[in-house]
């Protein structure tokens, strides 16, 4: 499943994922955003992996935010935007 979201004033945030046994699996974040250090990409993917399929946007946002070390820098990307892209992938909503 595939979801895209361009946050206002931000960059394109893309999520590809599967659902297995009611949980997110094979989650891959991509896009033309800026994220440092780049290892944070794998932290975000690992955090989303296994989240309940029914998790709300707020719950997903908090999960990503809580997993981020304090030195992470996001530009054109935010935990909220990632959560929106995940929900869109799950709902197969039309992209903005």
């Amino acid at each position: 499943m595939h979801g895209e979201y361009k946050m206002p004033g931000g960059k394109l945030v893309v999520i590809d994922l599967e659902v297995r046994d009611g949980r997110l699996a094979d989650v891959h974040l991509s896009g033309d955003f800026f994220l440092e250090p780049d290892s944070a990409l794998h932290t975000i993917n690992a955090t989303l992996e296994g989240q309940p399929e029914q998790a709300t946007e707020t719950e997903l946002t908090n999960a990503v935010r809580d997993a981020m070390p304090p030195d992470v820098m996001m530009y054109g990307l935010s935990p909220e935007a990632i959560a929106v892209a995940v929900r869109r992938a799950l709902h197969r909503e039309a992209e903005a």
Partner: peptide
């Protein structure tokens, strides 16, 4: 391509 872009996409 950018550091976080999907090659396939």
């Amino acid at each position: 391509i950018g550091r976080f872009q999907s090659l396939r996409n």
